[in-house]
Design a protein around this nucleic acid. Structure first.
Lengths: 237, 237
DNA sequence: CAGTGGTCTAGACCACTAG
DNA sequence: TAGTGGTCTAGACCACTGT
């Protein structure tokens, strides 16, 4: 049984993206939505809070919830979203090429670990090609204590799909860190960029719902093709 | 009168940052917090939802809310936070130098506006110097229809403080876009970086609570000093 | 089993916006 | 004044975790 507020959220997202509720118009009021979906007001408000957080709407006290214009072509650094899911949502022609697949340990220096920690892991290097252009190198270290083996077929498809649907692991959260650095020679060669170019590096550390460490990832993006957008609300620290 | 869930949130943040609730330990249960603060469970949960969103805790069903390690030294792209507020929270030695202050219109091409739109604005260029090093150039265009005049004194201090406390405007949200580009000669000179260096460009469009446009900002960061971290939770698009 | 967080409800009062 | 979203409550049932 699907959660009610999730149902309402999805239905509203669909109606917004299909412009049944166009940008710069107001959604039905919370009381109306309460009747429409046969839910209590707090449940409707939970769905709206989700829309708010994801930048679909802005709420104005005394007036209503206004639909915002939605930028479709941004890379979601925020959020944990797989390329496979992106593929289905937008129609980017994405191709994934597995460059390396081996068994090692997580490199401590790269991910700021204690030098004492030795974590056996499966190392996967993949190249993401979008519309014929090599855009991103993903270096994944998947903790073997959680996922013992990963085949090349799985790597070529979606790790997340494998984790969630085959292994029945539940992804919880990740801490991400974004920096910019000069491209190494290997990166220049793989990404087809000139010496002296910069790359954007996104390092992340993914945990399961029960807080166990699952995966370390270093994503290396071509900086000239890198872009991400964010919806920020005013909040106190 | 302060909102109850905001009180609870702030108190918990304080206790976490002061390590009264250390990392990797559990917070008191929701029922205990309900008694501790004399609030209903849903109110406590609203405070916890805030902690969750800001990466302070992770919740595990059947077990409790676990405190996460908090990275203090990240630049908050996410969120709308002024340098002044950062200054007070961390103790960075921040200095702001006003380079330009004039009256113009918002440049359409830079912010992807319709060429027909002509928006009179106050232009402010400021240099942010942290620990003696020039790190960021902020180019702000403040819509004159909302804020008619801005003095050099105000610009040298905090625009947000001026907007919120003097002008009594309420900041609502901003859409932000992050890209990387080669530094222009002017940027090289101001930021003391070598030719061929990259800069990180954060463009944003800030709105008030009532949805009126307040401000366009282009922030140019030295890429070698740029870093931001994010806490991402698994969610469906 | 008792305790935890996750979902949902029905109802209340408030502050704000509009005509 | 009527309608909107914002806050808060008290209580219910569920699924999950540990013992």
């Amino acid at each position: 049984m699907m959660k009610k507020y999730e149902m309402i959220y999805r239905d509203l997202v669909r109606k917004i993206t299909h412009q049944l509720y166009p940008a710069n118009t107001y959604l039905p009021s919370e009381n109306e939505l309460t009747e429409l979906y046969g839910a209590s007001r707090e449940t409707v408000r939970k769905a709206l809070a989700n829309l708010l957080e994801n930048g679909f709407i802005h709420k104005i006290k005394g007036k209503g919830s206004i639909v915002l214009t939605f930028d479709r072509y941004a890379f979601p650094i925020s959020g944990l979203t797989s390329y496979h899911e992106l593929d289905e949502l937008f129609d980017m022609k994405t191709e994934t090429r597995v460059l390396k697949l081996s068994t090692t340990t997580v490199p401590q220096t790269k991910f700021n670990l204690d030098t004492t920690e030795v974590i056996p892991a499966t190392y996967i290097q993949r190249l993401r090609i979008v519309d014929g252009e090599p855009l991103v190198i993903d270096n994944d270290y998947v903790v073997q204590a959680v996922v013992p083996t990963i085949t090349e077929t799985v790597a070529a498809n979606s790790l997340y799909d494998y984790f969630e649907n085959q292994q029945h692991l539940e992804i919880g959260y990740a801490s991400k860190e974004v920096t910019v650095a000069p491209a190494t020679e290997e990166q220049q060669a793989i990404l087809h960029i000139t010496p002296g170019s910069s790359v954007v590096i996104v390092k992340s550390e993914t945990h399961l719902q029960d807080n166990t460490l699952l995966q370390f990832t270093e994503s290396v993006h071509r900086s000239d093709k890198f872009k991400f957008v964010e919806h920020a609300r005013r909040k106190l620290i």
